[in-house]
Amino acid sequence: MIGFFTGVEAFFTGLSRIHRLLPWILAYLLLLPLPFLLKFGISEYYVDLANRACLFILLSVGLNIVKGFCGQVTVGHIGLYAIGAVTSALLAINYQLPFWVSAPIAILITGLAGIIVGLPSVRLEGAYLALATLGLGESVRIMIAVTPAFGSSTGIMMIPEPKIGEFIFNSFESYYYLVMTCAIIGIYLSFAILRSSTGRAFQAIREDAIAASVAGINVPFYKLLAFVISALYAGLAGALFAHMPPGYLHHNNFTIIEMVTLLLMVVLGGIGNIWGGVIGAIVVTVIYDQTKDYYFYQPLIFGIIMVVMVVFMPHGIGGVVKQAMIKRKFIENQEESRGSA
């Protein structure tokens, strides 16, 4: 099993030596026929599920940056998602802006909101920070729930679909290509950021903020930067969600339960592991969908899974795989050096 993963990794590293974008293009091409396989293999419903999985990938990759890499416990991520969704929807409905204008504006506004959610992190840590961000996230939802202009209890309806010229993204299959492209670009960018000195700075802050500051890292700045980057992801996911057919938004999409689901994705997949976040998003979206009939028990099930994960597998699925791969490589290196000596 681990041998398979090391093989895949070696293959992709080899490709990236030829050109750094090559593995990504290959992955993109492999994902192109997916909606048709799902549609004719199972049913069209699963294309919609794949779309939602892509949205959750964007959300969980973004949350992983701030929580997994920078170590800031935030429970306000879903509020940022809501801000992105509502902003883009209202801009499109009230000002007739096309998606390609309303979404970037929504992403920028969400980024600014990310600064506000991130500000408590400069002074607070751990559970206290979680409480502060929880308050901010919930207040966004309540704001939406009580303001008629934001949809209130009826929700926002008739949000126009994105279109290029005459082509309208109004079916599940066509929308898949939009969200999947965004998800792949999102994952690529998060790799690019987290493998650079910025990513190392985030991890150093997670491990030890004092040692990080003495190592020359501007800790408050990088904490806020992590919040802003994750907010940009949430804003993009929100805008894509708002315009997704059937074009309907309701504040029930942004409750604390959704936040717990999102946290579960990151925890299950692996805190501080980008692929872990992606795996977690896919696994949890499928579980969430398949257990819909028992939705009263869903929070209970998710809560139990989360506790079990934190106790027995604190680094999630991705962490276990990564650990095994590192060990294997180290042992191989030792044997090699022994062989040569």
Binding site: S197, R200, Q203, A204, E207, D208, A212, I217
Partner: peptide
């Protein structure tokens, strides 16, 4: 030390 980061990453943080 940044215990969950690799040895190389630890010194690279120093280079920040």
């Amino acid at each position: 030390l940044f215990l969950e980061m690799t040895v190389l990453e630890n010194v690279m943080v120093g280079y920040h």
